[in-house]
Nucleic acid binder design. Structure first.
Lengths: 112, 112
DNA sequence: CTGAATCCTTGACGATACTG
DNA sequence: CAGTATCGTCAAGGATTCAG
């Protein structure tokens, strides 16, 4: 979460939004969990090129941002399940807008 | 511009959109130019903490993304003016959505 | 199974000096 | 005025190994 530095106040909210979705993996993890609750191993198999370290780290960030919920079940071997929160679901409308503009942007930049 | 790697096709457009706005400066430059055409020096004065190198680099990226237009006038000393393109203006509705969600996000993450 | 610890590479970003 | 060139720093992300 950013604090005031160079930015006018309203820019901070935009930057926070971008930051919450930035990086190579957050989007993929979010979409994977949107399709249903998953365990650590399941996610890493779906996103085959992610390392355990990155998956672990990104999940923590997403959890700290209240986009993802982590549930631990006391079994052996340990069972941990990840799911999308209500707040996590609310990003979908943002992604829609980004998708629409992104398509337009690709047309604009590539071949008109 | 990304090509297909791990990502499902629709994710690429979203990533391109995020990429076009990412980084410490792009948003500030875009907003500055939205308020009116500016010359290099004017922008760097408005965004006082940016270095010439970064401003130059970011402007090139924004120009290559068709978000900003660079106009050179053959005077001495040289005059270069930057302006927002139509495509650049189209990001405003994206920023609106990001702002709305960003505000909600801040409430969610900080003190509900 | 679900991670944490360590080491390494790469690119973003900054400071400063210089040029047409 | 409008940049470029050079050097340096730091954190993101990756590869690999270790642990409860």
């Amino acid at each position: 979460m950013l604090t005031s530095d160079d930015c006018p106040e309203n820019v901070l909210a935009i930057k926070d939004a971008l930051e919450a979705l930035e990086g190579r993996w957050k989007l993929l993890i979010l979409l994977s969990l949107s399709a249903g609750n998953k365990r650590f191993k399941q996610i890493s198999k779906e996103i085959h090129s992610i390392t355990d370290k990155m998956l672990s780290k990104e999940l923590k960030i997403l959890e700290s941002n209240k986009l993802v919920k982590r549930s631990v079940y006391d079994t052996f071997p340990p069972t941990v399940e990840y799911s999308i929160t209500e707040h996590g679901k609310s990003v979908e409308k943002v992604l829609d807008v980004l998708y629409q503009w992104g398509m337009q942007h690709r047309k604009e930049v590539m071949g008109n």
